[in-house]
Amino acid sequence: MSLYFHLRAVPPPALRNSATWFQRLFEDDWDTVRRRLDRHLEEMLDQRCADQHALYAGQAQDGPQADVVLGGRPVTHPVPEHPPFLILTAAQVTRVADYLGSTGFETLWRTLRATAPPDPEVHAILAAAHRDLTAFYTRTAEYGDAVVKCLLR
C-alpha cells in the first residue's frame, strides 16, 4: 500500500477546529475544495515523506525546519487507527517559507547524506520535492494561509 502526505492551504477564516471538517477537506475532490476555499494550493508527497522530513528536521526538534513536512499541531483523526491531522498557523507557514527560501537544497543534502553513500535517484527525488515544497509554502505564505496536513493511504 502506498502512503502519501497531503498538504493543503486553507485561509484562516475558513479553518475549522474540527477533525470531521479536516477529514472532509481531504476526502473531497480538488475541484470541490478549490470552490469551497476559493483557492487551489496544495502539495502531495509520496512515500518518501520520512526521508523528506529527515532532510529538513535533522537534529532540530522545533523551529521552521521541523515543520516543513511532519510538523504542526496534531488534531486527532475521527478514525482512531488513522494518524492525526497536523496544522500550521499562517505565522508558522511564513516561518517555514522564509526558512525554505533561504536554505539551499545541496546544503541540506550534504548534511543528510554525510554518513551514507550518495544516491543519485534519491537526490533527484528530494531535490524536486524541495522545489515543490518551497513553491507551495511561498505561495501559501503570500496568501496568508494556514496549512493542514494529512497522511493518506
Rank of each mutant, 00 (worst) to 15 (best):
K149V: 06
H77R: 01
T20H: 12
K149T: 04
V69H: 03
A57Q: 12
D62F: 02
E27N: 12
P80V: 10
V147N: 00
A19P: 15
Q61I: 05
P120F: 02
Y4W: 08
H40E: 15
A90S: 14
A135W: 06
T32R: 14
P118S: 15
Q47C: 07
A54I: 04
T89L: 07
H123Q: 13
V33N: 11
R8A: 02
V33S: 10
G144T: 06
A114T: 10
Q59Y: 11
L41G: 05
G63D: 02
V10F: 07
W21A: 14
R8I: 14
G144F: 08
P120M: 06
R8D: 03
G101S: 13
A19M: 03
F85P: 11
S102A: 15
P11Q: 07
L45H: 01
P13K: 04
R8P: 00
P120H: 05
C150N: 14
A141E: 02
T138Y: 02
Q47I: 06
A66I: 02
R110N: 10
L152P: 05
R139Y: 03
Q47S: 12
V93N: 02
Y4H: 14
Q61P: 01
Q65I: 00
P74V: 00
L15K: 11
D31H: 10
T20A: 15
P64Q: 05
V33K: 09
R131W: 06
M44R: 14
R153G: 12
G58E: 11
A50V: 12
L112R: 13
V93Y: 02
C49V: 10
D98A: 14
D67L: 15
D51P: 00
A114M: 07
S2H: 06
L3K: 11
P64W: 01
P117F: 05
A124R: 12
D31E: 11
D145K: 03
Q52C: 05
V33G: 06
T115G: 09
V69G: 02
T76D: 12
E142W: 01
H82Q: 15
V147M: 06
R153W: 10
P80Y: 00
E106N: 14
P120Q: 05
V79S: 09
V96Q: 02
Y99D: 00
S102N: 15
Y137C: 07
W109D: 05
R48W: 09
L100D: 02
L126S: 05
P12K: 09
A60F: 10
H123I: 05
D46A: 13
P11S: 12
V33R: 13
T111H: 13
E142L: 12
D31V: 08
H53P: 02
H40S: 15
P84V: 04
